[in-house]
Design a protein around this nucleic acid. Structure first.
Lengths: 338, 338
DNA sequence: AAAAACAACGCAAACGTTTGATTAATTTCG
DNA sequence: CGAAATTAATCAAACGTTTGCGTTGTTTTT
C-alpha cells in the first residue's frame, strides 16, 4: 500500500543492467537483445511498473496536454464543443485540461497565464464577453504555444480560428422568411458592442438589400438578453407601425422569453420565430421556432482540436499562415437542413 | 520568439550566484538577504521568468491535478457538476483534467489507467452505465491516489462517495402527489438492472405503504428510456384498470416523450407529471411537469471536489473511514422547494 | 588473417527545481 | 576578546527518464 511505485532504476538494479537498457527494452529499441527485452518486460509487469509521466514530460519538454479556456462549461454549446475536443485529443493520446473564464476578462488573463505555466502544448480559447484586449495571448508566442480560437474569436485575421459565419446563416434565415411570404421581419439582437450582434445585423441587411427591399433600421432592436430586456424589445414590435410577422432572436433564451411573453398576450400565433440554436430541446415547445440556425458545436470543437494538434506536431507551420476556418452553419427547419 | 524560456539556472548565472539561492529568493526563504532577494526578483521579472511546472511537479512528486472521469460531458448534469469541480479546484490552485467514458466499461478502464499514469493527485468518478466490476479502481490504491465517486456510484459503502438519495426524493414526490389527491400513481421507471431504478421503486413503495395504501406492482413499468419505449409504457397506463391520474417519469427525457405523446392523444390534461430534473428548460413547456426532483449537480460536484481535496491534503485519512455523503434532493414545485 | 560491420549493452549527462547539509562571514554576548 | 549565535549564501544530491556516444565482444566480409 504505502510502497513507492516501481521505477526503471529499480528494475535495472534487480536485473543487474543499466537503467538505459531498461528504458530501451521497454520501448523495443533495436539495440536491446530479445532475451533481455523479455526479461525486462516480464519483471516490469510483475512489479506493476508504470512509467512516471511527470518525469517523462519534464524530460521531453512536452506535456502532451492541451488547454481549453472557455466562458462557461455548463452552457450546452461549450460542453458539447469540449466533448468533441476531448474525443479528438484522446485519439492522438493527448490530455485535456480546462478552465472557465466565467466571462470575466481578468480571470481569462490569469488562466492564460496558468496554462502557460502548466506548459500546455497548445491552447484552445473561446474568449470571454468582455475581452477587448488581446495581449495576454501574445506571451504564449514566446513560449511557442500555439493558440486556436473557436466560436468566440478575436476581431482580426492573423490568428488561427474556427468559427461560424453567423452572417451567412442570418442571410439564409431571412431569405427563408421572405420566401415564406413575410415582408416585415423584426430582429431582437444582442448588445451592439458584440461582434456577434454585428454579424447578425450585417446578414439581415445583406439579405434585405439583395432582395431589393427597403431596410428599416427600427426593425432591429438591441437587447441585453435578459427576460426583461426581451419583453421590452418585443413590445416595441407590437406597437410598430409596420408590425413584423416574423422575428429573429439572438439566441434560444431570447426566443424562450419572447414566446412565453407572446403566449401570455395571446399573440403568439401572429408570429414566426427564428432563433440561433443553443438549447437542444427547444423544438419540444408548443410554439417553438419555425427554424433555427445550427452552429455545430461538436464540429467546431473537432476542427479546432485537429488544427491545434496539427500546429503542435509541425511547429514550423505556426506563424507562416493562419488557419481561418469557417464552419458553415445551417438553417434547420423541421430537422432538415435548408 | 524561438528563444528558450528563462530558467533559474540562467538567472543564477547572470547574477553570479547559485541556482539554489535563486530558488530560495523567489520563495522568500529567510536565508536569502533582502538585497539579493530583490535583485533576483527584478531580474526574474525583466527576463519574464516563469517557473517550469513540469520540473516542479516532477521534483515534488505531486501534480496538483485532479482527474475527472464521467460518462458524457455534454449532458447537462455532468457539465454543471464538472463546472463546480473546476471552480473548487481553482480555489485551491489545482488543475482539472477530464475524460469521458461514453458509458463504455472498457473505455473507463483505460481512462483510469491513463489518469494513474498522469499521476493525478486524486480522481473523481461517475461510473459508466455498464460498469459492474470495480477492480480497475483498486490499482489506484497502491499509488495512493484517492477516489471519490459522485452521482453514479458503486453499490457498496467502503468507498468515498457523494450522491443523491433518489429514494427519499421519490418518497417526497409520491407524498406530494398523494396530498394533491391522486390515488393511482404510475411510474415509468428505467431498466430494472439499474441501481437508480431500484431506488425509485423503493421510494415509491415506501411512500405507498407508509400511507397505508395498497401497492399495485403493475403501476410501475420498466422502460428502456427511448421514445418508443416511453410510448409503450404510457399506453399501458391508458389501458390500465386503475388508470393513474399522475405519472412519475425516470427523467426529463422520458417526461418529454410522454408529454408529447399525451398531447397528440389529447389526454395530457388528465395527468400530472413529476420528473427528475436534468433539462433546465423543461419548465418552459406548455404542459410541463408539475414538480421535479432537483439533484443539485453543482452542489454534488462541489462537495465531491472538496472531499477529494481533503483526502489529498491529509493522506493518512484515506483508508480510515469513508465519506458517504448524501445530498438531499428536493422536490421543486413552481421554483419552490417542497 | 586483418579489417570492417554489427549486436548488445553501459556511461554519463541532461531536463529545471528543490532541499538538507555545509561553509563562510558577520554579529552578539558574557 | 574569544566563543557562540546569527546571517547569507553555496554544495551536491535527488526526482525518473531519455539519448548521444562509447565500449565491448562477436560475426561477417575481402
Amino acid at each position: 500500500m504505502q510502497s513507492k511505485p516501481t521505477t526503471i532504476k529499480e528494475i535495472a538494479r534487480l536485473l543487474n543492467i543499466s537503467p538505459s537498457s531498461v528504458s530501451r527494452g521497454l520501448h523495443d529499441h533495436p539495440s536491446i537483445g530479445a532475451v533481455t527485452r523479455e526479461k525486462i518486460k516480464q519483471l516490469a509487469k510483475s512489479l506493476n511498473y508504470e512509467p512516471n509521466n511527470a518525469a517523462i514530460l519534464f524530460q521531453k519538454g512536452k506535456t502532451y496536454t492541451i488547454g481549453v479556456i472557455l466562458p462557461e462549461l455548463s452552457e450546452h454549446f461549450f460542453s458539447t464543443a469540449i466533448s468533441a475536443i476531448e474525443d479528438e485529443a484522446l485519439k492522438k493520446n493527448y490530455t485535456v485540461i480546462f478552465a472557465q473564464s466565467h466571462d470575466d476578462y481578468d480571470q481569462e488573463v490569469k488562466l492564460v497565464d496558468k496554462m502557460k505555466n502548466q506548459r500546455v502544448d497548445g491552447l484552445l480559447v473561446s474568449i470571454s464577453k468582455d475581452t477587448s484586449k488581446f495581449d495576454h495571448f501574445e506571451k504564449l508566442n514566446s513560449f511557442n504555444i500555439p493558440v486556436v480560437f473557436f466560436d468566440r474569436i478575436p476581431p482580426f485575421k492573423n490568428v488561427h480560428y474556427v468559427a461560424c459565419s453567423l452572417e451567412s446563416a442570418t442571410v439564409k434565415a431571412i431569405n427563408y422568411l421572405l420566401k415564406k411570404g413575410h415582408r416585415s421581419i423584426g430582429m431582437i439582437n444582442g448588445p451592439a458592442t458584440l461582434f456577434a450582434s454585428e454579424e447578425r445585423k450585417d446578414g439581415y441587411m445583406q439579405a434585405i438589400t439583395f432582395n431589393r427591399l427597403k431596410f428599416d433600421p427600427s426593425l432591429i432592436v438591441n437587447c441585453d438578453l435578459t427576460e426583461k430586456g426581451t419583453i421590452e424589445a418585443a413590445n416595441q414590435f407590437l406597437n410598430h407601425k409596420r408590425k413584423p410577422t416574423a422575428i429573429v432572436t439572438f439566441n434560444d433564451y431570447v426566443a424562450l422569453f419572447l414566446i412565453k411573453h407572446f403566449k401570455q398576450l395571446n399573440v403568439i400565433n401572429d408570429f414566426d420565430v427564428v432563433s440561433y440554436a443553443n438549447l437542444p430541446i427547444i423544438s419540444y415547445l408548443d410554439h417553438s421556432p419555425v427554424a433555427s440556425v445550427e452552429q455545430y458545436p461538436y464540429l467546431q470543437g473537432q476542427k479546432a482540436a485537429n488544427i491545434l494538434l496539427d500546429l503542435i506536431s509541425s511547429p514550423n507551420l505556426q506563424n507562416q499562415a493562419f488557419y481561418n476556418t469557417i464552419v458553415e452553419s445551417d438553417l434547420v427547419v423541421n430537422d432538415e437542413k435548408y
